[in-house]
Design a protein around this nucleic acid. Structure first.
Lengths: 209, 209
DNA sequence: TGACAATGAATGAACGTTCATTCATCTTGA
DNA sequence: TCAAGATGAATGAACGTTCATTCATTGTCA
């Protein structure tokens, strides 16, 4: 099974990005050195520069790849049979897909970078807008949302959902590393259900206490 | 009006921390150099080392000061006459108190740092827990919350509130800098009211659409 | 087929720069 | 006069980046 040059080249890029993800999550964009990344990838420093113009380009490529991953999650959420399941997919994507909790640290760093790097900010805004539009649409055509909108438009509901998701992700980086992915996931699901109940469930439920 | 040595010393520390806040927010903890900070403060580099052991200590002191500021905000929120006003204080504290939107960028950076610096993580967790406890208590003894708990405990409600607050703060750093503090504030208030309505307002409101 | 030429992926030492930190020196006020 | 405040040039480590060099693989021709 011979690989084309393009394929091997893409493999190398992916290999470097995988290593970069580990290093960035562990030390942050600007604390992780190109030597760290090369060591993690098991290649030489110089080789990175054959595939990426500079460190900035590695960061941008990481952000780009993250964008694609988010779009995948969104697509899966869109196809889920119920609104609750859609939300569960959105809220737990970062607990299991990849290794431990590297993803949360990476995303927080991405936002920190976006605060001072216009190009990254643009990209993150774009991802966020696409995702928001998708969720707004899911909500708008969901029967659950019809009779329980609390005076909020689907767009406003989506905004709240994303705010909570980001907030939980931020909280995630404070958690001691001993927490397993499963535990993180369980906590995320709890919060998701509460939010869902709040937004979309009419008071057919027994009141608390 | 003679100042004691302690007072002048504290002034200098505050002056350095003010400058550090500007630099950290503009460039991030590790991108901001000690020279940047000294220039912003209008003093020499060496003088910083008379008041702080090293850069790490400056970061820690910033986090400490932030903790005190949060506690002040919390105290004001606690004294507000209604629950809605408490929430409004909590949600808009970072839009106006200080200069433009430096605070949001700083806090996101603080969380990014917490992901890899155990000491900072501890401090942030501690602040968060204190604040959460305060808000939980405010909710628990608020009449508004009595008849509209949606099956959520005050603690669960506080958790959602803080998740949304963090999420909005994160979103804040994506906003183009041209946005004024007033505009940010207005947007924050809108979201606060929506969340409040959702959490604490029984469906005496007209439904949407 | 086998000898040789050409390729370009991969290496890592070296370069220039930046940065945190130090310290010899100067200033100031009592 | 002297202790404490303040300065900023000097230091050395760490970093991003470059590039001369190596060498396994591929292509060419007799």
């Amino acid at each position: 099974m011979a690989q084309t040059q393009l394929e091997t080249s893409l493999d190398r890029r992916a290999q470097i990005l995988d290593a970069a993800m580990v290093c960035f999550a562990k030390r942050g964009f600007h604390q992780a050195s190109m030597h760290d990344i090369s060591a993690e990838a098991g290649i030489s420093v110089g080789l990175i520069y054959r595939y990426f113009e500079n460190k900035e380009a590695v960061i941008s490529a990481m952000a780009d790849r993250h964008k694609k991953e988010i779009q995948d999650v969104l697509e899966r959420a869109r196809l889920a049979p119920t609104l609750l399941e859609s939300l569960e997919i959105l809220f737990t994507a970062h607990c299991c897909e990849n290794s431990p909790n590297l993803l949360s640290a990476f995303v927080v760093d991405l936002y920190a970078e976006a605060a001072r790097n216009l190009q990254i900010a643009e990209l993150v805004r774009d991802v966020l807008q696409t995702a928001m539009d998708g969720v707004t649409e899911v909500i708008a055509r969901s029967p659950e949302a019809k009779n329980a909108s609390h005076g909020l438009t689907p767009n406003e509901q989506a905004e709240l959902i994303f705010a909570v998701a980001r907030g939980m992700l931020m909280r995630d980086v404070l958690q001691p590393q001993e927490m397993t992915a499963a535990e993180r996931r369980a906590r995320q699901l709890e919060v998701t259900r509460r939010l869902w109940r709040l937004l979309f469930k009419m008071e057919s439920e027994p009141a608390y206490a």
